[in-house]
Each structure stands twice: as structure tokens, then as C-alpha cells.
Amino acid sequence: MKKASLFLFAFLLFRIGYSQTNPMMKLFPEGTKLHGNIPYMQDTLKKHLLDIYLPPNAKGNVPLVIWVHGGGWLSNDKYADMGYMKETIAEIINQGYALASIDYRFSTQATFPAQMLDCNASISYLYDNASKYGFDTDRFALMGFSAGGHLASMLGLTNNQKVNEFFVPGTSKDFQFKAVVDFYGPADLTLFPGAIDAKSPEGLLIGAAPLDRPDLAKMASPVSFVDEKDPPFLIIHGEKDDLVSPRQSHLLNAWLKVKGVPTDMIVVPGAPHFGSMFDAPEIRERVFAFLKEHLK
């Protein structure tokens, strides 16, 4: 009993310490409602938090865009990528979508599939609590950047297969995705120049050099899970990306086409791995036309 009381006290302190502290709120339209630092695993791990942003004056249940941050699977947090995508996140709210940004454990804390366990657990929480926040569970979309693009693709592509290793036991598997927006995410871990190096970001992710453990690399590569039941994809990649080759996105796009999955790819002329070039009006127009078509 005493131990339970101490745990409850620690948990409350955790909630107070982290509640509603959000450096990105200034980027969102006035009236956006924040539910910040929600512990989706009901524990005190900082990497098991998510933020929910709701459009002001929402009527009825709204579609949800799930934001998955980048950082090589070993850095950044749920606020990452928002700073250079200011107009996009504002437009998500202005278009009447909710946005949920999730954290997940770094590869330096736990190797793959820990990141998939965390992401799926966070989405299970959003699905199970949809009525509380006003989400339409039939209109979930994923949007990820770099390593987050990889995870968003993995989530979207494995969803219909319900891979047990990617789910925390006892969490919901009932959710589905209507669309995936993948910004320059890796598609095949063996294609990286660092695939021979266990200390490369992709090596740290799986705990071995991908070319030494192609079995682990295959399990962590989106192209391994493409089938005809996958949701539609919009893939966006910079022409001059020197961290994740555009060939990664070309490969994923080609596999989706082979399987008959609706897919479109945008190569941004002159663009590097990330930055405000991906927030340009012509890119936003394509992104929101895609979301409108599949979340209608």
C-alpha cells in the first residue's frame, strides 16, 4: 500500500512537472486547444508522451493527423520538424484536422522494434480515447519526417498485417490509417552507405550493421511490408538530400505501384534533407489535396 502511494505521488509530480509546457504553441492558430504531455503508456518515461492539438470550435468528430518526428532514431522530440513546417502545422488546424505529435524511445535507449511498440501504443491510446478528444477513428492519417517518415511508413504498411512484435501486449490493434505522408524517410536500411557500420544510425537502430544482419534490417525496412492492402501514400523527398538518398523514396514508391497501392511522389528541386523548402505553398497544396481526398 505504501509503495502504491509513493508511485502515485511520483506520477502526479511527473504530470505537474511536464504538463502543458509547449514551445510550439506560438506556431499554431489562435484558439488551438492543447492537451500536452499525455503519458500514453501510463508510466513516467519522458519518451512515452504525446501532445494533442485540437482546432478551435470543432463540430463533431474531426480527422486526426499523427505527427512522427525525425532525428535518426536517436535525437529530437515531439516538437521537432514543426519549426520549419510552420505553415503546414497551422494549415492542419485551419483545415479542421486535429494533430497529435508523439514521442518514442531513441535507439540508444532501446533497439528496434521498441520504436514501433511505442508508436503503436501511442496510436492505441489515441484510438481508445477518441471520444474524449473528439477524433473520428475512421479518419486517421500519418505524417512523418526522416526517421519519423520511416516509422510512419512502417506503421502504415504493417497495420493490416498486425505484426505481434510491433504491439505492446494488451493494447488495441483495431485502428487503421487512411493516408500516409512520408517526408524523406528511409525505405531499405541496407541501402545506406553506413550499412556496414554498427555505429551508424541505422546500425544503432537494429543493434548491428544492416549488412551483417540482413534479417534484422529486413524487419525494420518499410519495403519489406508493402502489399496491396496498404493505405495511399504521398512521398516527398529533396533532390539534393545527402543524408537519405532520394533513391530510398523512389524504391518505396515503385514497390507501392507494383502492388497497386495509390501513391504519388514529389521530388523537391534543389532541396536538402529537411528545411523550409518542404513548407512551400506548392508542396502544402499537394499535401492538403491528398489529405482531403483520403480523409473526406
Rank of each mutant, 00 (worst) to 15 (best):
K3H: 09
K3W: 06
L6H: 06
F9Q: 06
I16L: 15
M24P: 00
M24S: 08
K26T: 11
L27M: 14
F28C: 07
L34Q: 10
Q42T: 09
Q42H: 15
T44V: 10
D51L: 03
P55H: 15
N61R: 15
V65C: 13
W73G: 00
D77S: 01
K78S: 00
M82L: 10
M85Y: 10
E87Y: 14
L99A: 14
I102E: 04
I102M: 12
I102Q: 09
Y104F: 12
T108S: 14
Q109L: 00
Q115W: 07
L117S: 06
S122V: 04
Y125R: 07
A130R: 05
F140R: 13
A141C: 09
S146R: 14
H150A: 07
H150Y: 06
H150V: 00
M154I: 01
G156N: 07
N160E: 04
N160G: 09
V181T: 12
T190N: 14
T190R: 15
F192N: 13
A198Y: 06
I206R: 11
A209H: 08
R213W: 05
A217M: 01
M219P: 01
S221M: 04
P222S: 05
V223K: 15
I235N: 06
G238W: 01
E239N: 06
H250C: 11
L252D: 03
N253D: 14
G260R: 14
M265C: 11
V268N: 07
G270V: 03
A280G: 10
P281R: 13
V287A: 12
L291A: 02
L295P: 13
